[in-house]
Design a protein around this nucleic acid. Structure first.
Lengths: 184, 184, 184, 184
DNA sequence: ACTGGCGGGACGTCCCGTTGAT
DNA sequence: ATCAACGGGACGTCCCGCCAGT
């Protein structure tokens, strides 16, 4: 017999995630101190840490959410769709993605944990590229993996640029990538 | 007349920069605590902080060095040259570059300070692109700025990938970028 | 007319005391955090703190229970009886007694509160010693208070030993104490 | 080339140990918060934790000192000597001993660590008891270990009594123990 | 009657940069 | 010039107890 309905809990959880995203994005992982998280979320330590056992777990939950969402968009709307989403998405999205990359960089144990997170989505993405090579929508003088990796690189590059606050005009980038991966 | 020769001072300064680069690269900015810097450098707090007023200044000096060097390579060996250098020199160069990006992201005041650091190199890069457009070595249906920005995005993306420890095969990337920016 | 029978309340109170004794004994006063108490008792904060205003009051109630019980056993079965009880009931009884001593040590205000708790039992114990001195069952070259204090010291020493987990063979101790307090 | 002479370091170490003993003794281990330690010692966290890696290590160093000292006194002046020392020693000595016992009680891993600390002194103490049994200075109808354990119990009991602030008259205790362990 | 969400204080640790000693 | 002792602030965590909600 909990004190509050599970709907209330779910709402609070969202409130915490949303506030935390703002804080992590604006200040980075280290810079998002607990007092700042409290302020951005609008709840106290006591509340926050009753939903997530530690700051790291809170951050990780955000990163997983985003990763899953990005995969879905890619599958549904293609690579251009992802780029467009990034460009118009609130920069909060970007901040967490960027911080995560940084943390994976210096902590090998996290890297492994995170890479085996959703191999299935990756496999489906590669499969889709291969199919498009067969129908001559994409160049086939390079491996599907290489094409996929290139798109990933552009994606990360855009994230960095947007994260750094640079104004990014997304359409030329899409045109350039299209030219890069078109049949030669 | 100082107590030690200026040659000695220069050598010490180099020693500090080199050790600090290792530490920042391996642990990130926050993770590179002063004790770790001391160990990587081989000198104690007192010495380090007599050459650089704070941890931040030390980091910033490294970032400036790298930025300048990257511009030079770009001018001398072209974009492919920069990519190849990144692929070769992986660890330390990349780490500082990546960390810097993260810090610029969350500290607007640094961003401004850093962006007006070497406008001259940027101008020369854009000018070179424009010249190549005139000689039909590059596509001219997009602005020189847009082409430059695209290359910058790919560059950042590679940095992220390399920084994250992913194995990056640089030649396919160069082929893809070439196709992207070639006259259509 | 209360919402639940007073029998129910008494049973709950017992449940709380018993669970709390386990927790305090196993972890010490500071180590018995409220979550641990909840788990050992099987009730939540709210219930516990509706029977006892604070963690300290809960602990204190336990200590009083034990103190009273020890006095009774001493009167009924003599000093050897107390020692034998300690040796038998080791774990939980001892833990609370020991923790109490520690807290009295550092909190003078508690000390006073606790020492004047059951002067009547103490008086009866001293009186019994005096009677046994008159019948030559105990040596009378020392004050009754001194004999009593000595037995208290041995008692505390046993508690410490048992509390520390040392294997204590109680019979030799009883023989030694008997020799100590026997008429010379 | 340290900043200060090793004599200075040794003096500081003593200052820290002495202040910490006061704080631990007065407030108990948990009650001796870092701010209280700072105040009792007269130095800041920075200083204290550069001499001892953690609060626990500081406490442990004190406990070891005391344990060693008690063993020496026992060997040099006999059991009565130890009791007399306890009785007149500043209560700081007692406090640490008492707190240690409490911690050994609830932390089995510490117990083992501490029990194998000085088996040599214990062996010498038992051997001395045995020798006195042979020369009929002590009763020999009980094992040397049992006699030793009894004295340990009395010792601990005294510590508890003194620690609890009770006025302990040591001479009657010595007379009682003497009678207990004398040949029957 | 009982639950557990929640506030906000305090904890031990560790960090950075100053400073006095060598 | 270089050292490391030291001050003191800030960190993430966890704790206790109040009280709103069931």
């Amino acid at each position: 017999m909990p004190k509050v309905s599970s709907a209330h809990r779910a709402k609070r959880r969202r409130q915490i995630l949303d506030g935390a995203r703002k804080a992590f994005s604006r200040h980075g992982y280290e810079g998002a101190t607990v007092p700042r998280l409290e302020k951005a979320i609008g709840l106290s330590r006591g509340a926050i840490f009753s939903y997530f056992p530690s700051k790291w777990d809170l951050f990780y939950a955000l990163a997983e959410e985003d990763q899953a969402r990005a995969g879905e968009i890619w599958l549904e709307e293609g690579f251009g769709g992802v780029l467009r989403h990034i460009a118009k998405e609130r920069p909060e999205w970007i901040g967490v993605y960027f911080e995560l990359t940084g943390m994976l960089r210096t902590r090998p144990e996290l890297r492994e944990q995170f890479l085996k997170r959703s191999p299935e989505v990756n496999a489906r993405l590669v499969e889709r590229v291969r199919a498009m090579q067969r129908t001559a929508e994409l160049r086939d003088d390079l491996d599907a993996e290489q094409l996929g990796r290139f798109m990933g690189i552009v994606l990360d590059g855009i994230v960095v640029a947007v994260a750094a606050g640079a104004p990014v005009d997304i359409d030329p980038v899409i045109r350039l990538v299209s030219a890069a991966i078109a049949p030669q």
